[in-house]
């Protein structure tokens, strides 16, 4: 969801790379309909590379499964990766400029300096 394309000289700025120092896993109620609705709004390859970069792939396939709406076990794994894992401390890194955005207490700091916009 986040990008650094608002920065001067950055065209796409997406996906941001994630470096996780601390992760937190929590339990969130599973709603298969909601997850099925969200999946088409995601860029699947981006989700996979994000999950890989924090070491939480949960065996998600490189390509989206056909008829995933009916595959509860698959939806549960997507649910876990999407909603139950938080990067508490770490950083997001712009793929083009290398600009780092720190994450502290789960809150990314994406405030840009005046000379960056």
């Amino acid at each position: 969801m986040l990008t650094s394309k608002c920065m001067k000289g950055v065209n796409i700025g997406y996906p941001l790379k994630i470096k996780a120092v601390d992760l937190k896993e929590s339990e969130v109620d599973f709603n298969p309909d909601f997850i099925s609705r969200i999946i088409p709004k995601l860029d699947w390859t981006v989700l996979i590379s994000a999950a890989n970069s924090i070491g939480k792939n949960e065996n998600l396939p490189e390509n989206l499964l056909p008829e995933y709406e009916k595959n509860t076990e698959f939806l549960k794994r997507v649910h876990h990766v999407l909603l139950e894992i938080d990067v508490v401390n770490g950083e997001l890194i712009c793929p083009e400029s290398g600009r780092k955005f720190p994450i502290n207490n789960g809150i990314p700091n994406m405030i840009l300096n005046e000379d960056e916009v």
Binding site: M1, L2, T3, K41, G106, I107, P108, I111
Partner: peptide
């Protein structure tokens, strides 16, 4: 509840039209 907070100006660093 679950709210994801992000320190930024307006929505400048979110993808568009989401």
């Amino acid at each position: 509840t679950c709210v994801e907070a992000c320190n930024m100006t307006f929505l400048t660093c979110f993808k568009e039209n989401v």
